[in-house]
Write a protein that binds this DNA or RNA. Structure first.
Length: 420
RNA sequence: GUGAGCAUAGCUCAGUUGGUUAGAGCACCUGGUUGUGGCCCAGGAGGUCAUGGGUUCGAGUCCCAUUGCUCACCCCA
C-alpha cells in the first residue's frame, strides 16, 4: 500500500468543518484589522531562506526540504513565510505603493523534522507581516490578533510570553558579556549547556539542570545592555498590552530560533497540547528587508500553527460541529423512472437546494436509511402510485408529516422545503 | 540526528503458561411481507494477526531483522 509521506496528513472530509471554521475566522479577523491576504509560491530559491532566516539556524541547517530542479537550481519548500513575503514585497515594490503593508496568509509549510505530537513535516500556518513601520503598537497588534483568534476559537489555558532582544549591536555586546561570565563556570555546566555555549548561548537559560539554574541565577541580563530606545519600545508594547487587557509574562529566555528578530519577540502557548506547546510565535525583524536586498524597512509578524490549535481544541473538547444537513433526498420507488428521478434531483439543485438521490439501485428501506444518515430535512418519494397523477410524496423527516405534491411545479416543491 | 514504546477487521480493542475453523463493540451491507428513516431484532460481508526469517510437533502469542506508526530529546508552529 502506498501511504502518505511520513509527517504528512490527509485532511479528510470529516475534518474539513474545523479547518474551514478556523480559516474563516482567520480571514474575518484579519479583515477587521485591515490586513490583506498574500499568497506566495510553495517553493523558493534555497538562498532566500538561507539568507533570510540565517545559515546557522536549525531550520536552515537541518530541517529544510531542499532539492535541485531539472535545471540544477536549488529549490526549497517554504519552511516559514516571512522570508517569502519579504521577497514578494521587494520584488513587486509594494512599499512604493503604500508605506505600510499589512499582509496575512494561510499556507502549508514544510520542515523535515522527526514528527511527534503537534509537529508535522507538512503543517499549516496562518500569520501576518506588517512591513514599513517601527511603531510598537504594531508589535502589540500582532499579539492582539493572534490572541483574539485563539480566544474566539474558545481556547483556555493560554499563556502569552514576551521578551525583547533589542538591536543586534546590543545583543552582541550582551552575548560577549554572557560568554565571559560563563567561561568561569564552564566546567560546572551540564553537557547540553556546554554544547549550547558554542551554538546558542542564550538558550542555556532554558536548562532544567539544577547546576545550570544555579549558575544562570547570577548571569548578566540582556535588559541591562539595552539602550534607551530599545527600552522605550518594549515599554510601549507592554503598556499597550496592559491597556488592552492581555495578560502576559516577560520571559528573558524567549529567544526564538530565527536570526532576524530584533526588539519584541512573543509566543502564545497552550497547556492543552503535548510538549510542543507553542501555538503561535512571532516578533519584530527590523533588519530583514534590507538584508534581503530591499529598502531598510522595519517589520513585525507572527505565525500560528493550525494543527497545534486543532490539537489543543481536541484536548479541550471544543470545536464540535453539528452534522451537515441536506435539504432533500429523492427516494426512488420505481426503478424504471431512474432517469426522471435524477433529472428532478438536479432541477432541485439548480433551484438552490442541497439535494441527493440514489446511485446504487438500493431498496427503499436502504434509501431511507441513507436519507437519515445524510440528515435530510425532507424525503421526496418519487415514482409511486401518485406518479400517475404527476405527483410525489414529500415527507418532513423530523415531524414525519407527509403530503402529495405536484412534480411539475418545481417552484412550489422548493418553496415548501425552504420554508421548512 | 538521538532515545523509548507500539503494530490483530474500516475504527477502538480482547485474544488466558505457545494448542483445533482468530473474537467483541462501533461502522458497513441485507432483511424483519405489497411503498417509509432513527430505536430494536435477525443475518451477512470484511483479517496472508505489518513484512521477512528463526525456534517448535505446533507461533497472533517466543527470538531476530526490516518497515511503519507513536511519544520524547534537540528545535520549532
Amino acid at each position: 500500500m502506498i501511504k502518505a509521506i511520513t509527517g504528512t496528513k490527509d485532511i479528510l472530509p470529516s475534518d474539513i468543518p474545523k479547518w474551514r471554521y478556523i480559516e474563516n475566522l482567520v480571514r474575518t479577523t484579519f479583515e477587521k484589522f485591515n490586513y490583506s491576504e498574500i499568497r506566495t509560491p510553495i517553493f523558493e530559491e534555497t538562498r532566500l531562506f538561507a539568507r533570510g532566516i540565517g545559515e546557522e539556524t536549525d531550520i536552515v541547517s537541518k530541517e529544510m526540504y531542499t532539492f535541485e530542479d531539472r535545471g540544477g537550481l536549488s529549490i526549497t519548500l517554504k519552511p516559514e513565510m516571512t522570508a517569502a513575503v519579504v521577497r514578494a514585497l521587494i520584488e513587486h515594490s509594494l512599499q512604493k505603493k503604500s508605506q505600510l503593508n499589512k499582509l496575512f496568509y494561510i499556507s502549508p509549510m514544510f520542515r523535515q523534522e522527526r514528527p511527534q505530537a503537534g509537529r508535522l513535516r507538512q503543517f499549516h500556518q496562518f500569520g501576518a507581516e506588517a512591513i514599513g513601520s517601527n511603531d510598537p503598537f504594531l508589535d502589540a497588534e500582532m499579539i492582539v490578533i493572534a490572541y483574539s483568534i485563539l480566544n474566539q476559537i474558545g481556547l483556555k489555558n493560554l499563556t502569552v510570553t514576551i521578551n525583547t532582544l533589542g538591536i543586534p549591536s546590543e545583543r552582541e555586546m550582551y552575548k560577549n558579556e554572557l560568554r565571559g561570565y560563563l567561561k568561569d563556570h564552564y566546567n560546572r555546566l551540564s553537557n547540553e549547556s556546554k554544547r549550547r555555549y558554542g551554538t546558542n548561548i542564550l538558550r542555556i537559560f532554558d536548562s532544567k539542570e539544577e547546576q545550570d539554574i544555579e549558575i544562570m541565577k547570577d548571569a548578566p541580563l540582556l535588559i541591562d545592555f539595552l539602550g534607551t530606545q530599545s527600552l522605550e519600545h518594549f515599554d510601549k508594547v507592554k503598556n499597550a498590552l496592559a491597556k488592552l487587557g492581555i495578560k502576559y509574562e516577560i520571559e528573558p529566555r524567549l529567544v526564538r530560533g530565527l536570526d532576524y528578530y530584533t526588539h519584541t519577540t512573543f509566543e502564545i502557548a497552550s497547556g492543552s497540547v503535548g510538549s510542543q506547546s507553542a501555538l503561535c510565535g512571532g516578533g519584530r525583524y527590523n533588519g530583514l528587508v534590507a538584508q534581503l536586498g530591499g529598502d531598510d524597512l522595519p517589520g513585525v509578524g507572527f505565525a500560528a500553527g493550525i494543527e497545534r490549535i486543532l490539537l489543543a481544541c481536541e484536548n479541550e473538547n471544543i470545536l464540535d460541529f453539528p452534522q451537515d444537513k441536506i435539504d432533500v433526498y429523492v427516494a426512488l420507488l420505481d426503478k424504471n423512472l431512474n432517469d426522471d428521478s435524477f433529472i428532478l434531483t438536479n432541477r432541485l439543485r439548480q433551484k438552490g437546494l442541497k439535494a441527493e438521490c440514489d446511485y446504487l439501485s438500493r431498496s427503499l428501506k436502504a434509501q431511507m436509511r441513507e436519507a437519515n444518515k445524510l440528515n435530510a430535512s425532507y424525503v421526496l418519494f418519487f415514482g409511486g402510485e401518485e406518479y400517475k397523477d404527476k405527483k410525489a410524496v414529500l415527507k418532513n423527516m423530523e415531524s414525519g408529516v407527509q403530503a402529495d405534491i405536484s412534480i411539475d411545479d418545481i417552484e412550489s416543491i422548493v418553496e415548501k422545503i425552504k420554508r421548512g
